[in-house]
């Protein structure tokens, strides 16, 4: 368990930081790349925590995932403002558009989690919306990483595909587990 968890955290960041695209990169690029690779691990683990009883961990890791994504974007701004603004513009490449929409979905997921008790929606509606937006964030985030040259190519591609597929399946599993738990609580 601990070894698997360590591997999920260490492998993406290890692969990303050993890639040649960082050869002449400033420290901000290294930081940005490391944050993005750690966000990959966080997004892969999040649905597993959602399906378990460790909801406080799930909430903490969700906030951490969003913080890592924001550090990734902030680091890119420090490296080259022009390229970052261009990537986020309507003329930016597909991978950047995926990242932008995926980040918005992740922000929405975190807001849903934080404000759950105050939102005027039923439990089932909240669960479906939360799971849908989480899936969107995962698919677009991993899609962004797959289309991005440099950080996670070669073996990194296999890691992304494996982690991404597992995360999407785990979202479905977590949804089913949470819905069953809610039904039992309602009937008990």
């Amino acid at each position: 368990m601990a070894a698997g968890l360590t591997a999920v955290v260490v492998v993406p960041v290890g692969l990303a930081l050993s890639d040649g695209h960082l050869a002449s990169g400033p420290p901000a690029l290294v930081l940005s790349t490391a944050a993005a690779a750690l966000a990959v691990s966080a997004l892969a683990l999040q649905p597993l925590l959602a399906g378990s009883h460790r909801i406080s961990w799930h909430r903490a890791l969700g906030g951490a995932a969003l913080a890592l994504v924001l550090v990734h974007i902030g680091g890119l701004f420090l490296v080259e403002v022009d390229d970052t603004l261009f990537a986020m513009s309507p003329d930016g490449p597909t991978r950047a558009r995926m990242a932008l929409i995926g980040t918005l979905a992740l922000i929405a997921v975190v807001i849903l989690g934080v404000a759950r008790a105050r939102l005027p929606m039923s439990g089932p509606t909240w669960r479906i919306l939360h799971a849908f937006l989480a899936t969107l964030a995962i698919v677009l985030g991993f899609g962004h990483a797959l289309l991005t040259d440099g950080a996670l190519d070669g073996p990194g591609t296999a890691v992304l595909l494996g982690f991404g597929a597992a995360a999407v399946l785990a979202v479905a599993g977590a949804y089913v587990a949470r819905a069953r738990r809610a039904r039992r609580a309602g009937s008990g």
Partner: peptide
């Protein structure tokens, strides 16, 4: 050229 921003 290297892909500092995702693509050379």
């Amino acid at each position: 050229t290297i892909p500092q921003f995702g693509e050379p």
